[in-house]
């Protein structure tokens, strides 16, 4: 199936739950709400004509221009995106599913935004979600073991946020 067929099939099934789509992007994608994510992805995996049984990648992208002078021209509102790259082993087609999130939950700094986990559907989601939590700072609700995977357990902050400040020292070793 081509990307337009897949997205049409999804739109007839889910209707307005597909918030937006883009066919002219290099990799066609759909955007869903966090609350609908598991339902849509479960359908993508279990429907035999779609059969997206490979979840290759989960990445978190922080859309923020840290310099306030350039922020007006940046071309985007500050937000976070969690991007899922799916592929079918049988049909070999690919699809990108995106979830848009606020940078902080309820706009209170320090409270991480939340997405439901996909660990019940894909084994590969487990470590990738831990990594996104570690580096970008997104909480995956329902994850069996949501701890830091790459950085030390007592690390502060999430380094791939654009406004992250590099540590000056860590356990007595100077950082810069």
């Amino acid at each position: 199936m081509t990307a337009s067929d897949i997205i049409t099939a999804l739109e007839t099934k889910f209707g307005t739950k597909i918030k937006s789509k883009s066919l002219e992007a290099i990799d066609p994608f759909i955007v869903v709400d966090p609350s609908d994510l598991v339902e849509v992805v479960r359908h993508l995996r279990d429907e035999p004509t779609l059969a997206f049984d490979l979840l290759h990648n989960i990445s978190g992208v922080d859309y923020l221009e840290p310099d306030p002078k350039k922020a007006a021209k940046a071309g985007f509102e500050p937000h976070l995106e969690v991007v899922y790259h799916l592929q079918s082993f049988q049909h070999r087609h690919r699809l990108v599913v995106k979830v848009l999130l606020p940078r902080w939950k309820n706009d209170q700094k320090g409270q991480l935004p939340e997405v439901p986990t996909l660990t019940s559907l894909y084994g590969s989601a487990n470590w990738h979600e831990r990594e996104v939590y570690d580096l970008v700072g997104v909480i995956f609700v329902g994850h069996p073991d949501l701890t830091r995977i790459l950085l030390a357990e007592d690390w502060e902050g999430h380094p791939l946020r654009k406004d992250y400040e590099f540590p000056l020292e860590y356990h007595g070793i100077r950082g810069r």
Partner: peptide, 11 residues
């Protein structure tokens, strides 16, 4: 490199 020790002679 936020996580890299800047020289092992610090350790």
């Amino acid at each position: 490199g936020y996580n890299v020790v800047k020289g092992v002679d610090l350790v």
